[in-house]
Design a protein around this nucleic acid. Sequence first.
RNA 1: UGGGCUAUGGUGUAAUGGUAGCACAAGAGGUUUUGGUUCUCUUAGUCUUGGUUCGAACCCAGGUAGUCCAACCA
Length: 589
Amino acid sequence: MNYELNKSLNFIEQIVKSDLAEGKNDGRLQTRFPPEPNGYLHIGHAKAIAMDFGIAEKFGGVCNLRMDDTNPQKEDTEYVEAIERDIKWLGFKWGKVCYASDYFQDLWDFAEWCIQQGRAYVDEQTSEEIAAQKGTPTEPGTNSPYRDRPVEESLRLFREMNSGNVEPGKMILRAKIDMASPNMHFRDPIMYRVLNMEHWRTGNKWNAYPMYDFTHGQSDYLEGVTHSICTLEFVPHRELYDLFVAWMREWGAQTSRFTYQGPRQFEFNKLNLNYTLMSKRNLLVLTKEGVVNGWDDPRMPTICGIRRRGYSPQAILNFIDKIGYTTFDALNDIKLMEAACREDLNTRAIRVSAVVDPVKLVIDNYPEEQVEEMQAVNNPELRDAEGNTIMEGNTHAIHFSKELYIERDDFMEDGGKKFLRLGPGKEVRLKNAYIIACSDEQDENGNYKCIEKDSNGNITCIHATYDADTKSGMPGADRKIKGKTLHWVSCQHSIPCEVRNYACLWTCENPRDAIKQYEKENGVRGIDAMRPFLNPESLIINKNAFIEEFAKGLPALSYLQFQRIGYYNVDPDSTPEHLVFNKTVGLKG
RNA sequence: UGGGCUAUGGUGUAAUGGUAGCACAAGAGGUUUUGGUUCUCUUAGUCUUGGUUCGAACCCAGGUAGUCCAACCA
């Protein structure tokens, strides 16, 4: 990836830069991206990925991919592969793939040390009792009756917790900190719980599993992470993170295992997008209820969905770069993401002609059997040093004939002066071909002779004449006309195709809050609380479109621009027999 | 109602005690074989009240608003 060297650094990059300059961590920089493998990555993760991997790349460090797999109830190997695929697609490379479960033995040994130090104890109360004792944010909690039980007893029970003979919920290991702390995370947090469940990586070795707070900082420490970067909601965890890291440093020193100072946690604002729902729980409902066609539906905010929608990795990264990293809880406008997408696709999309809502156009004075081959530019933004479009290797063949399709809304019977497209008495240019004109002659009933209509009054065919001297590339083509340039395809050379046009899934800016409120007010949950806010027109399929034959041979996910319409890509389900295109984003304006 | 974090045009972000700048959006105009692209221009901002200072968007205090924290989730 290319970074603009002179661009100002975000606040975390500034910290890293000065840490490096001061020689902290022996001049090392190490980060990690720590997803829980319990679902697909979404655009919010992309922001974290761009930070974690990007900062390591930028400052000569390393970033590991670490699966945060401490809860075997929710996690699965299926997601690991999807996560790796998505990160690679975004263009990032990890130092190595790690697993929190790699550290289960170390974590266990450390937990035993904590017990021996009198800093942890086994609690045998029910979860309800523990919750009640925790107090509230405004009232201090009270100590567990098991808090001061003998070290040897806790140690014996802790080992018992992992035997498989303890029922889940009967015992937990808690850190002895401060039940009156204003920070709720300090009120004797749970370190280990019994699950008695097979783990997809460690099998049946463990029955008791560590909690997030007793895993994350420790994993960072064991791995050698210097900067542990996460989102703002983990700010209240930082104090506890630091405490456990300090304990671990002590343990490490006593056992001569570790020497380094340890990682530090930094937080940035997570990505919120308007008209977008990001939460895994709700996304799952959409897939289960068939509102969307799976996790990679082009309307989903998942990375695989956005990829299928037609975004390039660079478009996503550009967008993330534009919104930046701060500590302000912002709500970003989806329009900015679309603008970033257009900006990128403009430089890489191949221009093709596709008529999405066709109406037939007959060139009356064009010879019946004649076919002309012409050249169309693939990408006019491909320019040489003088700023001229490069033609060499940047064109493909198209065919012109007597019968064409044009866009139905490019013709108006009475469009008025501001309508610069086709109509009776109007002249337009056909892209890469000829200037054509419709006559304004009327028959005895006052109907325009250039328009054929069916019995319902719908236009079925338009007649025009071409000016043979105005073929593109010829001197006569320089003639200036008032009308615009229209795209078209030849009836006998174009291919029928399916075009899927997408819009936002949601009709309200903040679907998460809207759904939450609807759930509260109406006592319903899940899909029933979502329906009122779903956009019924988020997918409009057009099966009657035609596209030039050049598009037939393009591979899945090719970036295209349907000229004058928008950016599209080739759907992975598209076949030569049944071409399918997804609308990525419309053209501006 | 305890604690933490935050507040700059409509949106996002920069300015790190010394000229409030950029992008998107919106509007006007020029160019154009995409009503695209591109170019020019316009509109519009430091939440509030005090304090420190020669000087405050920036530091301090109060207020207001938003947000996070009371899972045997991460």
